[in-house]
Nucleic acid binder design. Structure first.
Lengths: 344, 344
DNA sequence: CGCCGCCGTGAGAGCGCTTTCATCCACTCA
DNA sequence: TGAGTGGATGAAAGCGCTCTCACGGCGGCG
């Protein structure tokens, strides 16, 4: 069935020969066909079809100096980053958009600072055209690493203040938090508590800022610290009830902590939302919908953020050439949306 | 700081010139240095160091016809495959082993049968040296797809019976199940129930087979069907208690279902393990350790399975040349281990 | 002492592609 | 009618690397 000896795929040369044109023309057609007359172009396309020609990416990369691949860098200070449903959606968005652009996704798993060298070398080696990275912690060395490697990159989530200025895509954590708190205010709540996320994650910081934007004079005792886990949410809730038994609403920095809070409120016999209204953040469907009562929360388009990361990177790539033009890279903040369910 | 004009990385030519040798010799050193005399080799290595030389993979691929990359194919019939902690560990193992082999991980996300064409073309295009895939369902088209693309591949998990014969890595589901059940027998239990997983997943089938290996004459009423979710485990447990209120042990096909069963047993006032002993499968730490009582279960080395997939693929690649030699590919079954905790 | 063989090295071909540059043709305009 | 124009095409030069092959020098053996 193969026209060639087994193992050897047809080359552009073969296509050109079959179509009766030069390699140059065949190449032009394969790459869009600009400047080739219709009948010739058709002949070439036909030959491509018949031979089942697929361009050799290596040869192409060699001359264009573009790999057609993008690295997705996963730093994993914590254990369970990868299996975060969040992350999954984001990577899916990235994957889809990359596919739409005929680019490949190379997964780079950073196993800690000791691994930075390897990653830097790889990135610097021109194996990928750009990188997409996720920065979760303030002290993450990733932004610096990527800057050093001089690879065009886009971050998912706003890197910490200490980090180098890099373009990123994030959702409007602060604005979303404001919406959530305003919603509670609109419900007539007057003693609105906040369960904050880890102090070293920008998303948590921004959400807390949003809370304070609306309730700038809130009693500090109305804020408790959590770490984005359900248990920490429960602990924080317990603490809050002790400090301010009169609270009538809680805005938790994520759904998991909101679920923990809900558990404690139920155990203490506080009716939700009658006595205490609860709002979460993220709209993690599995958590928010199965919570009792179902959770009012702030939704973000996570897959969309992934796609946007790719688009932004694509733009940086086409603009800056090979990373030489380091103009002010525009970051993108995506809007959020309040999803009303039963808890508030 | 760069010795070249910005953007142009040093070539092997430059290294050779600096070391005062020919390109051929430089190449030999870079690729292991066999057949080059010590002093010369040292000079070359020095030049590499000084210039910060990194081989151009595209050029190398062009001549060696090897990409140095391996595709990891994720078919996602269900929604949440990727965020399965299981999967995460396996991919981590793969990533680590690939890194150790200086190979890259290209992530291919299959968006359903409509996407098969694209994947087949990609795989057939010689962009990767081999593929690692995960087959979860009996009717999965992936094995056939990969066979058609003629790419050396290794599967994670035994593909269904309908699938083409492909090498795979799996844990000893059947043997692990036997161990679990024998453990219950050893505890003196006489009416041991089984909560089975989905009928179309080979792992679930094998575990059920293991149960029957030991208890070949068990009452069919002692087996209930679940789907690997916690809720299904709870439902199955309820059913079992209705059918055989006298049961004194349960072997669930995974930890999640065991947790569901535990919940129901507690609600019904059955003491675990006194009245009913429970054993799970997988040793998903977050589930098994936080269950009340903590879960006795069967552990598998998931990361190890990932690494093994890579090793197996590497072997296939080095043996079979470019997939021409399609000898009987040996699959690997990894041992399991019973982890005793409180529930049995 | 001379020949053979082997090891270490360098010259150079060529992997498959893109892209410049020259060429050629069909027109248009003076 | 002939020079000028511009677009379509082909020839060929590499991109950076590996690897074959030829070559030269050296040691061992007859």
């Amino acid at each position: 069935m193969p026209e060639q000896s087994p193992g050897s795929r047809p080359t552009l040369e073969a296509v050109a020969a079959r179509a009766g044109v030069s390699r140059a023309t065949a190449s032009r057609v394969v790459n869009g066909g600009a400047g080739v007359r219709q009948p010739l172009a058709d002949k070439v396309r036909e030959a491509v079809e018949e031979l089942g020609y697929v361009p050799n990416q290596a040869a192409r990369s060699l001359v264009t100096r573009q790999s057609g691949a993008v690295a997705v860098i996963i730093a994993e200070p914590e254990f369970r980053i990868f299996s975060d449903p969040f992350f999954e959606q984001q990577v899916r968005g990235i994957s889809r958009e990359l596919t739409a652009n005929d680019a490949q996704l190379v997964l780079l798993w950073v196993e800690g600072p000791g691994d930075y060298d390897r990653i830097a070398r790889y990135l610097g080696g021109g194996h990928v055209d750009g990188a997409l990275a996720f920065s979760l912690h303030d002290d993450d060395g990733l932004p610096a690493l990527i800057r050093r490697a001089k690879v065009p990159a886009v971050f998912g989530g706003r890197p910490g203040a200490g980090a180098a200025a890099v373009p990123y895509v994030d959702c409007d954590n602060r604005g979303g938090a404001r919406t959530a708190v305003r919603h509670l205010v609109g419900l007539g709540r007057e003693r609105i508590a906040h369960i904050a996320g880890p102090r070293d994650q920008t998303s948590a910081i921004d959400r807390a800022d949003g809370y304070r934007d609306v309730l700038f004079d809130a009693d500090p005792a109305l804020t408790a610290q959590g770490d984005f886990t359900e248990d920490s949410g429960a602990r924080a809730m317990t603490e809050l009830l002790e400090r301010r038994p009169d609270l009538d609403a809680v805005f938790a920095a994520n759904d998991l902590m909101a679920a923990g809070a809900l558990r404690v409120l139920r155990a203490r016999g506080r009716r939700v939302p009658d006595q205490v209204a609860v709002v979460g953040f993220d709209d993690m469907v599995t958590v928010a919908e199965s919570a009792r009562p179902s959770l009012t929360t702030v939704r973000q388009d996570i897959e969309g953020m992934g796609r946007l990361m790719v688009r932004l990177l694509t733009r940086v790539l086409s603009e800056g050439g090979d990373g030489r033009h380091v103009g002010a890279p525009a970051s993108v903040i995506m809007p959020t949306e309040l999803v009303r369910r039963a808890s508030a």
